[in-house]
């Protein structure tokens, strides 16, 4: 609902001088690839990975539900809610953009990393996929055709519209029942034969098990940059207040 309304607001805002928000029913129920990608990025931040087709499907549902909500219950009171959320989001983005303008040279980044190395410690992690099936036969048939080939599994799952969970988790947070299926705690790139899991049958694909330890600088450079940028957010906001609200405290 909020996503749908957010999109409408984004469209509406281009024709307005200030942040007056108008919401009208959408004339299009088509979801663009750009919208799907945007939605996938939001989900990625919640550690949920879905493919673009699935993203479009969910967005379309949301759009239909939002339209139905609009027509059935109206959106009285929602505009103020939206305005607050939207203004907060724009404030965050403004600070982010201003922070990004600041040049950070490599000596600065490297010294920040070296002085705060412990912050870049990573536990052993497992990247995995779980393919879900209603019956053992369906799971076994899929497993046979995959022939222990990850790319084949992926294309077959798309063809057969099989639901997949693709996640990366700390190994110690990985479901104990699934942990028992692992060959060991180091091996990557293999597919486990179908297993009963709650009411369904699953095929577990171990994509990668990464080592623990302090991550090398080159691997975390972008994270280091973001961490350092976070440290200058406060100063940046202060400067913006001085510039845009010179009379405020």
């Amino acid at each position: 609902m909020i996503q749908k309304l957010g999109l409408i607001v984004l469209l509406a805002i281009t024709s307005l001088q200030a942040l007056d928000i108008t919401v009208t029913p959408s004339k299009s129920s088509t979801i663009s690839s750009h919208e799907a990608e945007y939605f996938r990025n939001i989900l990625m931040k919640r550690h949920i990975n879905i493919d673009p087709q699935e993203a479009k499907k969910v967005l379309k549902q949301n759009r239909v539900f939002a339209d139905y909500f609009y027509k059935t219950y109206g959106i009285e009171g929602k505009i103020e809610e939206l305005r607050i959320v939207f203004e907060e989001k724009l404030t965050e983005e403004l600070i982010k953009k201003e922070v990004e303008k600041v040049t950070i040279n490599d000596d600065v980044l490297l010294s920040f990393y070296k002085d705060n190395k412990d912050e870049y410690y990573k536990n052993k992690e497992i990247e995995f996929k779980i393919y879900n099936f209603k019956t053992f036969d369906a799971a076994y048939d899929f497993y046979k055709h995959c022939n222990n080939d990850s790319a084949k599994c992926a294309s077959l799952s798309r063809e057969q519209n099989i639901s997949i969970v693709h996640k990366t988790l700390p190994l110690n947070n990985f479901n104990p029942q699934l942990q028992n299926l692992l060959v060991d705690n180091t091996r990557s790139h293999y597919i486990v034969a179908p297993q009963k899991f709650f009411k369904n049958y699953i095929i577990l694909e171990v994509v990668k098990i990464s080592d623990d330890g302090i991550m090398p600088y080159d691997e975390v450079k972008d994270i280091v940059k973001t961490d350092l940028q976070n440290k200058i957010k406060y100063e940046t906001k202060k400067k913006l207040i001085e510039k845009l609200l010179p009379t405020s405290e």
């Binding site: 490297l110 010294s111 991550m215």
Partner: peptide, 27 residues
Amino acid sequence: EKWIFINDIWYHSYSQSILPPKPPKLH
């Protein structure tokens, strides 16, 4: 004290407590 070698030069590291909070841990 901690000193760190960056691109062939040693630098002094002063107390962290004067800085803003550290970034959240990744683990």
